[in-house]
């Protein structure tokens, strides 16, 4: 104990100076997504719908960009016929260590927990939209209405996950209910959580095995190995949000008129690619 209690108090306060930033995480749940394996089949999306009680919003609201997918497979196209290059990238909540959304929420409905997860407390949410506005990855979804399931579809709802009401923001949780269950099971068996105990629904379902989930604090875990890959990158790394989702670059064929793609981050001064379609 230091002699100066005021100093001690200041030190203690410093720890809590910033919301939710712990010195040491109990775990650092991390997902590695290998873009070279991903073929864009969207099995992960359906798995998420089933696991997390995501509502179906219907055609009209889909057109208003209000679809409730917590994970989506984005597709980017470059080039013109016959030299078309397509890239898929599954995007889910990046569980940023320095999350802009956490900064925005006035009531701590979103905060950082000791597992390094970016947690959303539905009950606390007042719906200021700030978190979603600040999110660079557009992964937060809002309950525009109280969504209904046509009977008897509601019988499928997962009792481990709450059904959200109107006016609440929601997002990918890394299947926190599965993380809880995995930790509880390990505790019941009197051991530490080991690699492979916990798998979120998307990672579980992926037919191509593009997803790997685990604890980055565990140096032996598969994600720790994969995170060392030289193909690794994180989405918009220069924003310094420190995402917990690590992507592995897709390997593209040489030549064939592909745009030269370097390992650098967001292109300063790159002219926008002319090709592509849609609008």
């Amino acid at each position: 104990m230091s002699g100066n209690p005021i100093k001690a108090i200041i030190e203690r306060l410093k720890e809590f100076r910033r919301p939710g930033y712990y010195k040491n995480y109990d775990h650092k749940w991390t997902m590695v997504i290998d873009l070279d394996r991903c073929n864009g089949c969207e099995a992960c999306v359906t798995a998420c719908y089933a696991e997390n009680n995501l509502p179906v919003v219907g055609k009209e609201d889909c057109g208003n960009s209000r679809v409730m997918n917590w994970i989506r497979v984005e597709r980017y196209v470059a080039g013109e016929y016959p030299d078309v290059k397509v890239k898929f990238i599954p995007i889910l909540c990046q569980q940023c260590s320095k999350a802009p959304c956490e900064l925005g929420c006035p009531v701590y409905a979103t905060y950082h927990n000791q597992d390094g997860l970016n947690v959303q407390v539905y009950n606390r949410c007042v719906g200021t939209f700030t978190c979603a506005t600040y999110c660079p990855y557009d992964v937060r979804r809002f309950n525009w209405f109280t969504y209904k399931w046509d009977a008897p579809l509601e019988q499928q709802l997962n009792p481990d996950v709450t059904v959200r009401e109107m006016g609440v923001m929601e997002k990918c949780t890394f299947c926190i209910q599965r993380i809880r269950a995995g930790k509880d099971k390990a505790k019941d068996e009197g051991r530490a959580v080991k690699d492979g105990d916990i798998t979120p629904a998307c990672a579980q379902s992926c037919p191509a095995g593009a997803f790997t989930f685990g604890d980055l604090n565990d140096p032996e875990s598969r994600v720790s190995m994969l995170a060392k890959s030289r193909r690794r990158f994180r989405l918009f790394e220069e924003l310094n949000t420190e995402p917990s989702v690590i992507y592995l670059k897709k390997v593209f064929a040489d030549g064939g008129g592909n745009p030269p793609v370097g390992g650098h981050t967001l292109a300063g001064g790159h002219p926008p690619v002319k090709e592509g379609h849609g609008g």
């Binding site: 897709k250 390997v251 064929a253 650098h264």
Partner: peptide
Amino acid sequence: GRDIAQTVSV
């Protein structure tokens, strides 16, 4: 031009 889904050549 944002290099979102990054790639690496063979």
